[in-house]
């Protein structure tokens, strides 16, 4: 089989990788999934398809919790001149799914959100999502650094670390995030070793 034939097997031609990207955008994906869900998907086991459908059939987080997650996610990964924010990449939806997929995240997330609201209430008289952004940052400053934890703040630090981890995983696994971090693979190509300028930069020409 030659290269042209193998690209055909992949459903690609040399120029069509852009089309594949287009077809895989989150928005379009949901439509396709809904249709294909009716029968088995190639390479998926029946129990996996059924499990995904079941997880998508109910909500775990309340509206208040989801709104708080969205505020936190954008504090962790805001929009900058290179790419959009965590909510632009629909990170809260990912977190909603993943706690159903991995139930061991449920108590740390739900309890952590509640801890955060109680902290906010006692300091500023309102829930976290209702206080001003300066007040939100004041709380976040106290829970964002696992290396220096003030007395009594450890539960908040643990929660924020989990929230940061989930936000990063949710963000960098989207088209926005992958573009941001600069991953350039996942497409047919030829690997001929480290580019010459890079070899030179690191003095690795003779290794």
């Amino acid at each position: 089989m030659n290269r042209r034939e193998s690209l055909k097997v992949l459903g690609l031609t040399a120029v069509s990788t852009g089309i594949v990207l287009e077809a895989c955008k989150p928005g379009k994906e949901t439509e396709t999934v809904a249709k294909i869900d009716e029968k088995a998907k190639p390479g998926r086991q029946q129990f996996e398809t059924e499990r995904d459908r079941q997880l998508n059939s109910y909500k775990f987080f309340s509206e208040h919790e989801m709104a708080t997650i969205a505020v936190l996610a954008d504090i962790i990964i805001p929009k900058d001149d290179k790419s959009g924010s965590a909510t632009d990449a629909k990170v809260p939806d990912f977190i909603e799914f993943i706690v159903k997929d991995m139930p061991y995240h449920q108590i740390p997330m739900r309890g952590g959100l509640k801890w955060l609201d109680m902290q906010s209430l006692s300091r500023f008289g309102k829930s976290f999502k209702e206080v001003s952004s300066d007040q939100q940052i004041a709380i976040v400053e106290d829970i964002a650094y696992p290396g220096k934890v003030k007395p009594g703040m450890q539960p908040g630090v643990n929660f924020f670390s989990l929230m940061r981890n989930l936000t990063a995983s949710g963000f960098y696994t989207t088209e926005i995030g992958i573009k941001d971090v600069g991953y350039m693979g996942n497409q047919p190509n030829i690997w001929e070793g480290v580019p010459a300028d890079v070899l030179k930069h690191y003095g690795m020409e003779d290794v």
Binding site: I76, I98, V140, A144, F160, R164, N165, Y172, N186
Partner: peptide
């Protein structure tokens, strides 16, 4: 190396940047 990001990407950034943190 520069692998395709997947679930777990970015986990434990405090072990790399020495602090954790948030924002820009």
């Amino acid at each position: 190396g520069m692998g395709m990001p997947g679930y777990g990407f970015g986990w434990g950034i405090e072990n790399l940047n020495g602090k954790g943190g948030y924002g820009a």
